[in-house]
Nucleic acid binder design. Structure first.
Lengths: 199, 199, 199, 199
DNA sequence: AATGAATGAGATTTCATTCAT
DNA sequence: CATGAATGAAATCTCATTCAT
C-alpha cells in the first residue's frame, strides 16, 4: 500500500463519488470516463493520474466503499450480543445504508454482480467478508441455541443476503411493487428470523 | 405479432441459443455480435436479418425464454392445490430450471439486472408476471389460512424471489460458498415457509 | 445489342420505372436495391437477372429514358423550321416532359450530375446529344441570320440548358420561390431569345 | 453560436478544407471520413471531435463557405450602383470565385444538389440568400427603369443562376464543350442582360 | 426465371487512454 | 499536477451481390 498525500486522496475520493453517481445512472459499461470526469469537474486525463484505468476505478470504488460499510457493520453490531437482536440490527443497518446512499446501492447491486464476469481475476474478498458477517451471526445463533443447528450456514447466509438485497433493489428501482423500507425490514425480520428459529 | 416462416424462426432460435451461451460467458457488453454469429455458425450480417440490433436480441431472448419458463411454471403448478405444497413445488421447479440451463440462468441473473438500466424504455412485464406467480401463491396461502395474513404480498414475493435468486446465482458462480442445489431447495423451503406460516 | 424477349423487356422496364421512383425519392446512393425491388414487386435477386449491378441500372435508366426523350424532341421539332419558333418549341417540350414525369426529372437533374463523378468511365453521350439539339437550333439561327453570329454555340447551348434546368428544378422542388411552369416558359423564351437575337 | 478556441477553430477549418478536396474528387457519398482525415493529416476520430457526423461536416462546409461567399458578394457589389453594371459585376465575381476554388465549386454544384434530398430537414437559407442577391439586382433594375418591369423576379433570378451555374459546372468538368471562363462571362452578360432590358 | 436468405467486405462511429503543453 | 486534444483500435451495423432452391 502506497501512502497518499491528503490532497491527492481527497481528489481521488471526489472521483469515486462522481463515479458512483455516473455508474448508478448509466451503468458501468455505458458510462464514459469523460462522464465521470465531467461530474467530478476535472479533465479526463486527471482520472488517469489516480486510477490505472476504468476497471481499476470500479474496483477501487468497491473496495473503498465496502471497507467503510464493513467497518460500520462491525462497530454497530458489536453493541449487541443476542444473535436474534444482532440479526435484526443487521437488517436495519443494511436498509439504513441503502437509504442513505441509493446511488451507491445501485452500483453495488447491479454492477457488482456482473463485475465478477468481466473482471476475470478480481477476487471479491470484501463481499465475502460481508456475507461472513451474516454467517457469523448465524453460527453464533446456532451455538447459543436460538437457531436451528441443522442449517447450513453457507446456504443460509446467502439466502438471507438475497432476500435483503432484492427487497432493497426493488425499493430503489421503485418499479413493480411499492413499499416502504420499514415494511421491508419488518417482513425480512419476521419471516427470516422465524424461519431460522428452532422449531 | 408477425408470423415467421418456420425456417426463419428456426434460424432465429439458433441465434438466441448462441446468444445465451455467449452472453453467459462474456456478459452482454463484452460479447460481440460477431461472437454470437460465430457461435451460431453464421455470418455477422445474418444476425441483423433477424434482430434490429444487439439490444433487440437481448430483449427477444428475455421475452422468448421467459415465456417458456412462465408456461412451465403455470402448467406444473396447476397440479398442486395446497399453497404450501405449491410453494415448495415452485422452489423445486425454479432450481430445476436453473440446473437444466445454467447459461440461461446466468444471463437472466446477471444481465437481466443491468438491462433494466440501459434499456430505458423496456418494461419488463414477463418478470412482473413471474413475481406474480409467487404473489399468487402467497395470496392463496393467506386466504386458505396457512400463511400469516398480515404479510404484505408485494414485499414477501420479492423477498422470496431474492432468496431463491441469490442462492441460485451463488451456486452457478460456484464462488464464495459451495453447496448442492438440493441443500438450497431444502433450506429455502424450510426457512421461508416456516417464516410465512401463521404463528 | 442483344435482343430481348418481349416478356423480359417488360420486366426490365418495370424495374426501371420502380428505380425512377425510388431514386427520385431517396437519391441513388441512399436508395437500396431492395427498395427498388420492393417497389417493382419482385425479389431482390431478380434485379440482377436484368442488370449487372446498381450502377448498371442507373446507366440503363439514363440511356433508355434519354433515348425516348431525344426521339420525342427530334420528331416534334421537325415540324418547325423557323429557329426562333424551334427554340420556343424546345422550351415548351422540355417543360412538358418535366411536368409529365416529375420523378424522372428529379433523377436526371440530381443524379445525372453526380453520376459523372462516380461512374468513372461513363461517357454520357445521350446528354451530349441532348445539348446538341439546342446547339443545332443555335447554329441554324445564326446561319439564317436571326441569332447573333458572334455567339459561341458551345457556351450558349449550355447557358440555355442551365437556365431551363434550374427553373425546372426549382419548380419541382417547390421550395425557395413558387411559380407556374407557364411563367417559366414565358420568361425563358422572352429573356433568352431576346438575348440571342441580332442587335 | 458556440465560441471556439482559436486552436480548435483552426483544426476545424483544416478538416473543412480537406473535406472540400475529398468531396470534390470522390463525391460526398463515395468519400470516406477516413479519406477526409487522411487528407487533413489527422486520425479518423479527430473528425468526430469537431463534427457530429459526416452529414454535419457537409452542412458546416456549406454554411461556412457560403457565408464567406455571401460576404464577398455583398461587399464587392456595394461598390456599384448601376444595376446593369452590378449584374455584370455579379457574373464576374461568380466566375472569379469558381476559378479560385474549383474544388469548392464542384462540391457546391454537384453535391449541394443532392444534399437537399438526403438532408431532409436542412433548410438551405444561405442558398436562398444567394439567390436573393440576384433578385435584389433585378428588382433595382426594374425600379430604375432599366429592366423589363413585367419580369417575375423569382423566375428570373433562378433562370440567371441556372445559366451561370451550368456554364460554370461544364467549365469545371471540362467535358462536353470547352471554353474559357472569359467567354462564359461575356456570353452570360451579353445574352442575359440584353434579355432583361426594356425592349 | 424467380426467389430471398445469407454473405462479408467495408463504412461509420465511439471512447479508453495517452502525452505534449 | 492538470489539461483536453488527439489517437486509433475495435465494435456496430449496412447492403450490394450471390446462389441454392
Amino acid at each position: 500500500m502506497k501512502k497518499q498525500s491528503p490532497k491527492k486522496l481527497q481528489r481521488k475520493t471526489e472521483i469515486v463519488e462522481a463515479a458512483v453517481k455516473v455508474f448508478a445512472e448509466k451503468g458501468f459499461f455505458k458510462a464514459k470516463v469523460s462522464d465521470v470526469a465531467k461530474e467530478a469537474g476535472i479533465a479526463d486525463g486527471t482520472v488517469y493520474l489516480h486510477f490505472k484505468n476504468k476497471d481499476d476505478l470500479l474496483i477501487y470504488l468497491f473496495e473503498n466503499k465496502m471497507e467503510h460499510i464493513l467497518m460500520r457493520f462491525n462497530s454497530q453490531l458489536a453493541e449487541s450480543i443476542d444473535p436474534i437482536e444482532k440479526m435484526k440490527l443487521f437488517f436495519q443497518i443494511y436498509f439504513k445504508i441503502i437509504k442513505e446512499d441509493k446511488k451507491l446501492a445501485e452500483v453495488f447491486q447491479v454492477e457488482l454482480r456482473q463485475s465478477v464476469k468481466f473482471l476475470k481475476d478480481y477476487h471479491n474478498q470484501k463481499f465475502i467478508d460481508f456475507l461472513n458477517i451474516i454467517g457469523g451471526i448465524i453460527k453464533q445463533g446456532k451455538q447459543d441455541g436460538f437457531f436451528n443447528p441443522e442449517l447450513n450456514t453457507n446456504v443460509t447466509k446467502i439466502l438471507i443476503f438475497g432476500a435483503l438485497d432484492e427487497t432493497a433493489r426493488q425499493w430503489i428501482l421503485g418499479t413493480n411493487s411499492k413499499y416502504s423500507l420499514k415494511e421491508a425490514v419488518d417482513h425480512i425480520s419476521s419471516i427470516l428470523i422465524t424461519g431460522l428459529l428452532i422449531v
